[in-house]
């Protein structure tokens, strides 16, 4: 059951203030990911303090990296249920967990960070993993051009 919106608002804002676009409806998700063109990151946000409490600060560190996907998106698991389910349908080979991060190029997953790769790790280490995803998306693009 979703938490009260007032409680999760700071968690949303911790991500959106980084310039990451939040997708709150199925229509939002389809508009963002439906074209399957270009590169994108989808951060699956979560209230979980054990993992998301480290992932959000890590994201803040990572977005200052020089190379990033063309589009940065987030959905909120456990809160925006339909939007999250739709977003996950774009990386359906990967089992749902939250927080998690998908890196897509032309609709294909090129890197995926599961919750088990986040939990218990300090933000600096998680940030390195996110940056690895950024670099991998860019490298994939370079090969294709």
């Amino acid at each position: 059951m979703p938490y009260h919106e007032m409680m999760v608002k700071p968690m949303r804002e911790e991500v959106t203030r980084l310039g990451i676009k939040e997708l709150r409806t199925v229509a939002d998700v389809d508009a963002a990911l439906g074209s399957s063109e270009g590169t994108a990151m989808v951060f699956v946000n979560s209230v979980c303090g054990c993992a998301a409490g480290g992932a959000r600060p890590a994201l803040a560190m990572a977005v200052s990296h020089g190379v990033k996907p063309q589009q940065l998106y987030t959905v909120f698991a456990g809160q925006d249920l339909d939007a999250t389910a739709r977003a996950r349908s774009y990386f359906a080979d990967y089992q749902p967990s939250s927080p998690s991060v998908a890196f897509l190029r032309d609709g294909e997953v090129v890197h995926f960070i599961h919750r088990h790769m986040i939990e218990g790790r300090p933000p600096q280490v998680i940030a390195e993993e996110i940056i690895k995803g950024f670099d991998k998306v860019a490298a994939e693009g370079a090969r294709a051009e």
Binding site: P10, M11, E14, C48, G49, A52, G53, P57, G120, P123
Partner: peptide
């Protein structure tokens, strides 16, 4: 460092995939 923790005070492995 920010980070909003809802359930502190558990065992070290709480919330960890094992």
């Amino acid at each position: 460092m920010s980070g909003h923790v809802f359930h502190p005070g558990h065992e070290e492995l709480h919330g960890v995939t094992v």
